[in-house]
Design a protein around this nucleic acid. Sequence first.
DNA 1: CCTCTGCTAGACTGATCAGTCTAGTTCGAA
DNA 2: TTCGAACTAGACTGATCAGTCTAGCAGAGG
Lengths: 184, 184
Amino acid sequence: MPAIHRERVLRAATSSFLARGYGSSVDDIARRAGVAKQTVYQHFANKDALFKAVAGDLAKRVLIKLEGGDTRQSLIRFGVEYRKRALGAQGIATFRTLVPEVPRFRAVARDMYANSAGEMVRRLAEFLKVRLEVPDPEFSAEMLLSLLAGLDRMKRLFAVPPGPETEAARAARIVDLFLKAHQR
Amino acid sequence: MPAIHRERVLRAATSSFLARGYGSSVDDIARRAGVAKQTVYQHFANKDALFKAVAGDLAKRVLIKLEGGDTRQSLIRFGVEYRKRALGAQGIATFRTLVPEVPRFRAVARDMYANSAGEMVRRLAEFLKVRLEVPDPEFSAEMLLSLLAGLDRMKRLFAVPPGPETEAARAARIVDLFLKAHQR
DNA sequence: CCTCTGCTAGACTGATCAGTCTAGTTCGAA
DNA sequence: TTCGAACTAGACTGATCAGTCTAGCAGAGG
């Protein structure tokens, strides 16, 4: 089943689901895509299948590369970028859309975690193992990600306005705390 | 408007919302409460009002006291308890229920944050100020809470099975990392 | 005994929505 | 030119649900 409008439907579904959660209607998605409702069903068996396709796409948008150079500077750059994805409007909307539906899509949800945060842990652990010779790199990686997007994500999720600190300053402070905890 | 069955309705609504999110029906809530639908509407103007009442109650269930004694031991006890509330089945269900509805209840959501995580930050900051003479107690408190329930909450939310480490061991490890970062 | 309040059962309205169906149109390839 | 695949508009079915309405019951205070 070759498909001309599949991509168009997928993009529309993504923005519709992000805006209104799983509850957004197939009619709305078709309208946004500028496509007949029937066309949606030509490409996806049902709403659940469409949602899974969207969710799979969304998961991969968090991924970031860790670059070389000075360790502290690399981690700060990484921190700023990670926070931008995880705490930005789209990251938060993704969260709101996916989290409540996890119980109905457990397997997909686990895959999504593995492809996003899980993959970040792996990359970061590798970096820390080489740079800091940490005894348990995976644990340390998880702790750094927790510091970068723990309570701050909660604040965004609960509509709490952010403090005055710049993103760069906050990332630097967090990285410094993390590095201090890993001094010999 | 004195009210015999108000409490009963509220409890039923809590478990219904936790189980199926805001989408659970008023009929279901009435059935769980063993009460006529009309009775629900005698106590709450509409579904939104009922949801807000439930949400307000749920928020306060995270609160924990910090006890005296050895600093490290106090923090570990606190950590274990906090993780139990934040990462336990009910804490996760609460999260799933509230997070997607925040955009429709921004003011309530902010209050809920202030009464739960926000209040924990205040108490913890006070404790750290006295015990560790930390320069920015609020920042440190936020970082400890992030370490305790950052990525691990994500894992629970995305149905990732937890590792083999016991809760006590993990809390201790996290507290030790936190304390190391705050040595003079 | 009477009345008022909180309650009950359950029918009903109007809206939304997933998914189906009909009856076509468009266009490229054979 | 004919065929078929991908598409269109829009009507339709059946289900769910918030919220209203009717009619009536139970029991406590006066």
